[in-house]
Amino acid sequence: MDYKKILDMMLDENDFTVGGGCASALAGAMACGLMGMVANLSKGKNYGYEDEKYDAIIKELNDMKGKFLEGSVNDNKAYLLIVNAYKLPKLTDEEKQERRKAIQNAGVEAANVPLSNALLNKRTYDIGRDLLEKSNPAAITDLQAGIDLAKVGIDAGRANVLANISLIKDEKVVEDLKKQLKNLD
Rank of each mutant, 00 (worst) to 15 (best):
S24W: 04
D170Y: 07
L91D: 14
N46H: 11
M37E: 08
S72D: 03
L149S: 08
P137E: 07
K5A: 15
A145C: 13
N76A: 06
S135W: 11
N183H: 13
A150Q: 02
A111F: 05
G28M: 11
Q97G: 00
I140F: 10
D75V: 13
M35K: 12
R100D: 03
V108W: 06
V83T: 14
K4L: 13
E60H: 12
A106S: 09
L132D: 04
E95Q: 15
L115W: 07
I58N: 00
G107D: 02
M9I: 07
A156D: 12
A29D: 01
M64D: 01
M37Y: 12
K172I: 14
G153Y: 02
K90Q: 08
N46E: 13
L80Y: 02
N117T: 12
K65A: 14
D155K: 14
K179V: 12
R100M: 06
S24V: 14
G128N: 06
A23H: 00
V38W: 08
K77M: 08
Y125S: 07
G128Q: 05
M35S: 09
G146A: 10
E13V: 12
A39R: 10
I82M: 13
V73L: 11
V161L: 09
D126S: 04
A118I: 10
N105P: 00
I103H: 06
L91Y: 11
K96G: 05
T124E: 01
N105L: 12
K134I: 00
G21L: 09
L184P: 09
K59C: 10
A31R: 08
G44D: 01
I165R: 07
Y79N: 05
C22Y: 00
N183C: 08
D2Y: 03
D126L: 09
Y125T: 07
K4V: 10
K5W: 06
A110E: 00
V83F: 09
D12E: 07
D15V: 07
L115G: 04
T141S: 15
K5D: 14
M30C: 05
C22K: 01
K4N: 14
L143R: 06
L34W: 07
Q180M: 13
A118E: 02
I147F: 04
K45I: 00
D170E: 15
V161Q: 09
V18A: 13
A102E: 04
S135R: 10
A139K: 03
D2L: 08
L115P: 05
Y125Q: 06
A159E: 04
E94T: 13
F68G: 05
A159F: 06
T17F: 08
N112A: 13
A138P: 00
G128H: 03
K178S: 02
G19Y: 03
S166V: 15
S42A: 08
L41Y: 13
A29Q: 08
S116M: 14
C32Q: 01
L34Y: 08
V73K: 11
C22F: 01
C32N: 06
K90S: 11
K151V: 07
L162W: 03
M35T: 02
V108D: 00
A139Y: 09
